[in-house]
Amino acid sequence: MTEGWRHTAKPFAWRRSLWIAALLTPALLVMVLFVLWPLLSAFRFAFYEFNGLRPSGFIGLENFRQVLFEKPYSDWTWNAFKHNVIAFLALMLFENGTAFLIAFALLKALPGHRVHQVIVFLPVVLSAVIVGFLWKLFLHPLFGLVNQLLGLVGIGAIPWLGNEHTALGSILFANIWHWLGFPALVLLAGMQRISKDVLEAARLDGAGDLALMTKIVWPLIAPSVTIVTILTFIGSFNWFEIPYVMAGLTGSPGGSTDVLGLYFYRTAFGSTTTGIQDFGQGSALAVLMFVFVAGVTAIALRYLRRREIEQ
């Protein structure tokens, strides 16, 4: 690629190396100090006992044993994990399902479709803290917008965030409202890459909207579905901000909205209810979450890529 100037630069080889090194140094330095080193330490720390902020002794797999098998830690871990799994399934079905319908509707490019893209993506640019607090106010049992609107059609006041059966679902709803535009526009971009000829040919063969959606569009956007699925999975298992804002650090009521992100934060940095912070156990949780997410992502990518090729 640089054949032309290589020989002209040869006499200045050391100056050239120095120049290249100078260009790379700032970025590499930040990466080594604040990504590579912390990441390697994170794995190491999981095998240590901690005394405050400093590791005090190697204890092998003890931290892992505690968070996975020793009560009450194991109960907290599995309870939180269960909610992450529920969140992933619910987001796949409701968020991505709705996003798919909206993308398909936008693909028709009917009047107003550009404005709609801007509208559906608007909450995506807002902070999860704003979205969380907004919906917390709206879901207030007495004065919240949701119950006020439901009251108009005669439905009584429901304590959305105060009831163990509705809290997680309510938080998921706020999350879907926040993020819907992202999968919608990613799937739309996938649909827009389908060649016009294919869609036109299907139309001429008499395919209706439903057949077009299920037989042509769905199989042909497999690569976009793969990306959306993987990002939803990673997002579901790193979920933290909306549950923190709407249900608090302990996943109230009664741990019914606790997720791994909250549990990890409580373990690592302490809270008024769980007491002291434990960097060793926290590191073990972080390693488990990382290995789980990376492992499942790798396996899922292989499966989803194969599916893309078959279709």
Partner: peptide, 12 residues
């Protein structure tokens, strides 16, 4: 995911 390396990052 840098969030999961927050403990060593904090110590650093």
């Amino acid at each position: 995911p840098l969030k999961l390396a927050i403990i060593p990052l904090f110590i650093q």
